[in-house]
Design a protein around this nucleic acid. Sequence first.
DNA 1: TACGATACTTTATGCTGTAAGGAGTGGCAA
DNA 2: TTGCCACTCCTTACAGCATAAAGTATCGTA
Lengths: 255, 255
Amino acid sequence: MALLWRDPNAEAVRPGPKPGLSVEAIVDAAIAVADAGGMAALSMRAVGERLSCSGMALYTYVPGKAELIDLMYDRALGELPVHYPGEDDEWREALISWARDTCAFYVRHPWMLQVSQARPVLGPGEHRFLETLACVLCRTGLRPAVLRPVVGTLLHLVRGCAQTIADARWAPAVTGTFEHEWWYARSRLLAEVAPDYAARYPVLVWLHGEDLEESPPPGDASLTYQETEARRTFEAGLAVLLDGVETAMRRADLP
Amino acid sequence: MALLWRDPNAEAVRPGPKPGLSVEAIVDAAIAVADAGGMAALSMRAVGERLSCSGMALYTYVPGKAELIDLMYDRALGELPVHYPGEDDEWREALISWARDTCAFYVRHPWMLQVSQARPVLGPGEHRFLETLACVLCRTGLRPAVLRPVVGTLLHLVRGCAQTIADARWAPAVTGTFEHEWWYARSRLLAEVAPDYAARYPVLVWLHGEDLEESPPPGDASLTYQETEARRTFEAGLAVLLDGVETAMRRADLP
DNA sequence: TACGATACTTTATGCTGTAAGGAGTGGCAA
DNA sequence: TTGCCACTCCTTACAGCATAAAGTATCGTA
């Protein structure tokens, strides 16, 4: 896709009325729409409205919605940092920083998680993004064949956690109820409809402690229980994963 | 949601014409539609067509599309196995079996991955599913506080890999091109549009070897390159993660 | 000045979920 | 037996979606 790799400065003088818009402006507006209302709110009309023109006007600059989404995807990735400095033996700290930045990024732009990876976008933004991760990972000294699955696993963890956090934040807006109200109503309904709960799911009850029955535990009051739990999963899961990478390094006789 | 926990055998005799449909039949038909055409093809009219009735007839049995999706989600989870036998010290094998079954399940029903987790469904199917995983994990002897993030991380890995595999399988149907054609066209385009590729992304080139330039490596010919890579990520990523769990067990002075 | 390319609009088509209202069915009380 | 009415299912309608097609306004250039 030539649009992805186009040079924004190359402008040809052509007959006809001056363009009132630009691909850049359209992509930015589309990102703003998707950030505010999610992928579901991203319609050509909505983007056009933000730019004070009809939805059809966009088709002059962009072939269709699919291509616009590709452009949004690649452009948004550009806001991520590129360098994670540090010595080779500090790869773990760098990787944790990378993961936190990337997770926060996906939470900021949850619609990114709904872009199909069926045919990777292959734009400069995605390449830059993967190059950054590869740079950090190659400090471990592991071979490409070992690192490649680690790349995928890290991405799955980061994206999964970001998805959960984003879902938790959207929930009140979508369902119209706050978490504690919903939680209270559901647990009461559950006790009514499945009175033998503790007997049917003993291990689950053990695993979650009393969470399903009592109110959310104290913590950062600005975060929902779901989000707190998702962040715990992120930090602890990342630590477990990196422990596994260290095991692989030990097996390969690396420091 | 009482519909989720309803007893299918409890039938009340009521006036009026005999119902020609049932919630079960509708949910099954909806699952079949979504399996065949993805979440995008799941419309009330499409489900009605499969049952030889209008889309509006479904509203007699189900309050709306959202509730139907919840029912589909919970019912589909019922087809997963519940028991993963073995001694306590064979938890690793059991967990790998669980992960493979679950990944294959999500690949069979990719629409499951698009069901929002904003407000968990809380039906019997989901509880059974999580109880199964908890049963396998508690064999490690680790404490709930340690295991809970492992549950989340495992789910993220399995779902992420399944998503990638499902995307790879859908790609030809959606884009109309086979993987090798698409790959060939894109790499030619890439070389044209970014001639300095190897200089701009040196570490990425190192990480992927010559993948971006040569044809897919030999392997199971029935699988696409993308899917092969996704399966490698799954197996190797799972191994790394379980190595990390073993590290945690060693720290806790467990066998 | 006239041409023709470009920018943008309006209109139309066929999808979507679902609200509203109408027609037919059949168990039960009178 | 008759009438009632809860119930099932249908048709119609509406707003919103992507986008194809056609029409109009603008402006560099011959």
